[in-house]
């Protein structure tokens, strides 16, 4: 795991598909290249969805954790 600083945090707890993806995209659009977004989701579909979103958009998931029903993603803007 590489070192990074979290620049922004987005809490998508309680939201369901496709809201976490839509909100993440909106947030990332406002960030600078290289900045990291911490996104929190409780949607159990979001683990695979975020990976696919990352594959398509090129914004990298530099780290992710799962704790109970909470999924946390660290996304670095490309």
């Amino acid at each position: 795991m590489s070192e990074f600083t979290v620049n922004r945090t987005l809490d998508c707890s309680g939201m369901n598909c496709p809201l976490p993806i839509l909100k993440t995209k909106k947030e990332v659009d406002q960030m600078q290249s290289g900045e990291v977004l911490k996104m929190i989701s409780t949607d159990s579909g979001s683990a695979n969805d975020m990976a696919s979103w990352s594959n398509r958009t090129g914004h990298k998931i530099v780290d992710s954790t799962t704790e109970g029903g909470t999924y946390t993603f660290y996304i670095q803007k490309s």
């Binding site: 598909c17 496709p18 993806i21 839509l22 993440t24 995209k25 696919s52 979103w53 398509r56 958009t57």
Partner: peptide, 12 residues
């Protein structure tokens, strides 16, 4: 609407 909005969020 779900698919179209998700597509836009994926740069499509």
């Amino acid at each position: 609407f779900i698919l179209a909005s998700a597509a836009a969020a994926m740069d499509m």
